[in-house]
Amino acid sequence: MTTKPSPLPKARLTVREGQIDYPTLVFLHGVYHGSWAFEEFSQTFSQAGYPVAFIDMPGHWGEQRLNTRSDIGYDGIVDATTQMMDAISGRKIIIGHSLGGLVALSLRSRNDVQAMVLMATPLPQAIRSKQWRLLLEFPRQAVGFLTTGNPDWLYHHEPFTAKYFFSKFTSDEKKSLANQRIQSLHEPCKLFKEIMAQNFERQPPIKPTLIMIGSEDPTVTFAVGKQLQKITDGKIEIVERAGHDIMLEDSSSLASGVIVNWLLEHAADGR
């Protein structure tokens, strides 16, 4: 008798209304995160009148969570996000953090996507270039990840998240709360393998893009921003006193203010 595989968890869409003539800002989170990462950050946009939508990727919310052996990879994440995007009416501007930024690049050709904000978005080559450094900095955890494919080895290790998610300016309270949530999540080995196999290239139509980089981010550096710029013709903004998790930093209000101003000035029909 054959055993049917368990159904994969579903994505979740949460929408907060705003001015009906404004495009909806769609927030896409990164690995080991969820829509909770944008709870405070998104308030600036709601106050500016924008409707906002949060997409929790499959297995990142509720009781049915992903594990390292779950059969979902990058393509599955993109498909699930596409379904949620289809459920949002009207024009959309994607604000994607890290993995969410890569998904935004995969969805940029949609007719309803008007513009993109790529926050700390690591192209696969940037991740590959970090592997030797990780072996020096966190040898046990890096070897565990590279030999088993299980990303929990790194992402559940607080010294790793302290260096690669947050800046030295992040408050201990914010780091502690974020780490509790990060350690409640797991990512499939398949997801990381498929991310590394992606090849993001320049493709029409070119849409307004803001590339945001934290000044303290050791992975998504200005050099990575320049690579993203070649793909998108985007504008690079450096967020001072910020690490990879720009939206969770004490300086997050500066970043949200930059985005609001950019939407008004550079995104066609941004209001």
Rank of each mutant, 00 (worst) to 15 (best):
F160R: 06
L135R: 12
A80L: 04
T148A: 01
G243L: 08
A267F: 08
S98I: 06
A53C: 13
A87K: 15
I94C: 06
Y155N: 13
P218A: 03
K10M: 07
L28S: 06
E265R: 14
A162E: 15
D75E: 13
W61Y: 07
E216T: 01
A162T: 11
S251Q: 14
W153G: 00
E63G: 12
R181I: 07
P208V: 09
W262D: 10
Q83I: 06
A48S: 15
S129N: 13
I206E: 07
Q141R: 13
T161E: 02
S46A: 13
A80C: 05
K174G: 12
A53G: 13
L25K: 13
S35P: 02
A268E: 14
A104L: 03
V113I: 15
I95R: 10
G100L: 08
I93D: 11
R16I: 15
Y164I: 05
P188Q: 00
Q64K: 09
D269N: 15
N67C: 00
K10G: 04
S251R: 15
T147I: 08
W153I: 00
I259S: 04
N199R: 12
N111G: 12
T24F: 07
R140I: 12
Q141D: 07
M212Y: 03
L123A: 09
R91G: 03
R181T: 03
F222G: 01
L210E: 04
N179M: 13
E240P: 02
G234M: 08
D71V: 04
D152M: 01
G225Y: 09
Q114W: 03
I195R: 05
Q43D: 13
A255K: 08
W132G: 02
P23W: 12
M85K: 08
M116H: 03
F222H: 14
M196S: 10
T161D: 03
D250C: 08
L191Q: 02
W132P: 00
L28M: 09
A87I: 04
P205R: 06
R202N: 08
S106T: 11
W132A: 14
K92T: 13
Y32C: 02
L228M: 04
A120F: 04
A268S: 14
G270F: 08
V31Q: 02
F41R: 05
K168P: 00
F166I: 07
P218W: 03
G30N: 09
D75K: 09
H60G: 01
N199I: 04
L134N: 04
G270R: 07
T147C: 05
